[in-house]
Design a protein around this nucleic acid. Structure first.
Lengths: 340, 340
DNA sequence: TTGTATGCGTTATCAG
DNA sequence: CTGATAACGCATACAA
């Protein structure tokens, strides 16, 4: 077992004072170039890493960022979209020397609010991976002075990095107008509790007008986020729409794949009879039959941008930084659409 | 901002000594029933939670478990199978009062081995979510005295919770024998660097003999873990096999879905011409067309069992506990197989 | 420029 | 049964 290293015994071995070691590590105070080099070299040689607990106990900064997945919406690590963003976020902040710490309301016997946990753990900042607008506890956190970012929630006062939903919808409309040359459209959204879905719906209505195309039915709101809700939604859509749409835009790929399956089960051919476009570009979109034309969200960019933003916020708590960062998206054309 | 609470000011407000507060919190030493009740009540009322850093600094136990994803195999949080198991693991240990801390080789400027990081962070135990047998650094950790569990690696000295692969294959054979009544089989495996895949291959050969069925070709090893490698593997299989198999068993669903797609592109109908069985029961298995008959691994049980095992190991470091825990699996019948 | 002393919030070991 | 007190490893203000 390797010997336990502390600034104390390092100092002794170098004939210096513990405080000096601390100073060079933290790049604070004055220390001669020579000793700095000497200490740095020695530290590297023996692989010394400061004890985080002691550090956290003593100083203001903990180099820890809290991760919150609202427990109200019960999506966690297994959700591929969010966990992918989180993975990229994690990689980035770790490179900058920050650790992740999950914030959960209940840990063993102890139950606190998100905010109280963050104070208790003294995290330098928080990343709200997925939030729920009905979770009161979240607002306490958002309204606090703890630096926070999200890649999901749009709430005044919260810094958020999101894909440009309007741009995504616009790309689809451009494609419809220029290549597909279709007229009659319909839209299937996810639950309207999600701001992202609502933005997509709004953009849809906006561009339907602007491009002078025809919306064959009121927007259908799927009852949930998954495949099955898409399957049901498309049946409902065709039931209520006066004219059959030539193309259905769907607010997310998960739902869109259900739509594809639903159409197939109704013996409606995609793309010959109806064309379909999704949103997200989940892994399976390209493997489905037919493969799904969709708007790709750049998960890596989302995670890294959120990381960068949070680090900036943590370093300059009082600087005013643009609250919403919109990231570009791109259209990925596959088999579910086709030029006539 | 709520006042910062310490055992110190709690003690003062209760006219007790700090040490006494500590004792009731840790259920150690002797303290009268009366004061215990009083302290407990007060603590609950004001929502006091001990400062973890101080705690970790002082005591042997940190109530933290290290999470390692070998960086050599580059699968992280975005891998749905592992992140699902991890989520269940997380939920369970958090309920028991343990926190998660990701162990990565490089954190900011500091680079250490997994083992050294674990020592530095003083984790009480480690959960190796996914390991790579070529990662030398892992063995240092496994061979150390730090309690460790895995749900992936089979290595002497490492406690591992895995699905019963042989049972899974046997369930398929029973189903073939009793219901499907087929004779000619083939097997597509994932890369043979995975012990799980190898176990499934071995079981396949074992039961081919035992049930006196006919293996039409040497096992094909897909070059990777995903959809595409399955797509390629099935083409290769049909090329090399003398007789066309009536049923193809595939070592994982990801690969199996690629197989399904490959067959479809070759105009081979499933299940009419060839039947297919997967392994895992990933979310998409039931949504694909045709939906996939497969062996379901219980991810929740895997995560929770690993959690339980690790907690036991951490509490009784020297107790000898069964090294390999095999969990039952079940057969899920869907459209990709069919009685003749 | 370097060394010393103190405190961060606990736990654990003593006395009382 | 309870109260004082010394670590734990580090950062920092201050003294040298």
């Amino acid at each position: 077992m390797t010997k336990k290293r502390t600034i104390y015994n390092i100092a002794k071995e170098l004939n210096l004072a513990p405080g000096t070691i601390s100073k060079v590590i933290n790049q604070t105070g004055n220390v001669s170039d020579l000793t700095r080099k000497r200490v740095l070299a020695y530290i590297k040689e023996v692989g010394y890493v400061p004890n985080n607990s002691a550090r956290m106990l003593k100083s203001k900064r903990t180099y820890t960022v809290g991760i919150v997945f609202t427990e109200e919406s019960d999506v966690g690590l297994e959700h591929s979209f969010f966990s992918s963003i989180l993975q990229h976020f994690k990689t980035y902040v770790e490179l900058q020397g920050y650790e992740l710490s999950f914030i959960v309301k209940k840990l063993g016997q102890h139950e606190l609010s998100y905010y109280e946990w963050c104070m208790n753990k003294r995290v330098d900042g928080v990343y709200i991976v997925v939030g729920n607008y009905n979770d009161k506890g979240l607002y306490e956190l958002i309204d606090s002075s703890i630096p926070a970012v999200s890649t999901d929630m749009l709430v005044p006062g919260l810094h958020t990095v999101v894909s440009d939903n309007e741009l995504g919808i616009k790309l689809i409309f451009d494609y419809i107008k220029e290549d597909l040359k279709l007229k009659n459209l319909a839209f299937i959204s996810g639950p309207n509790s999600s701001k992202a879905f609502n933005e997509r719906v709004d953009a849809y209505y906006k561009f339907i007008d602007e491009y002078e195309l025809n919306n064959v039915a009121e927007v259908i709101y799927a009852e949930s986020f998954g495949f099955t809700s898409g399957y049901n939604a498309v049946a409902k859509l065709l039931e209520v729409s006066k004219n059959r749409p030539e193309l259905i835009m769907v607010a997310s790929d998960d739902i869109a794949l259900g739509v594809l399956k639903g159409l197939s089960d109704m013996n409606i051919k995609v793309p010959e009879d109806i064309q379909v476009v999704g949103f997200d570009d989940i892994a399976f979109a390209k493997h489905f039959t037919p493969s799904l034309t969709t708007i790709r969200q750049d998960r890596k960019l989302l995670g890294e941008t959120a990381a960068k933003l949070l680090i900036e916020l943590m370093n300059n708590p009082h600087e005013t930084i643009e609250e919403i960062v919109k990231l570009p998206v791109e259209l990925v054309i596959r088999e579910s659409t086709q030029k006539k």
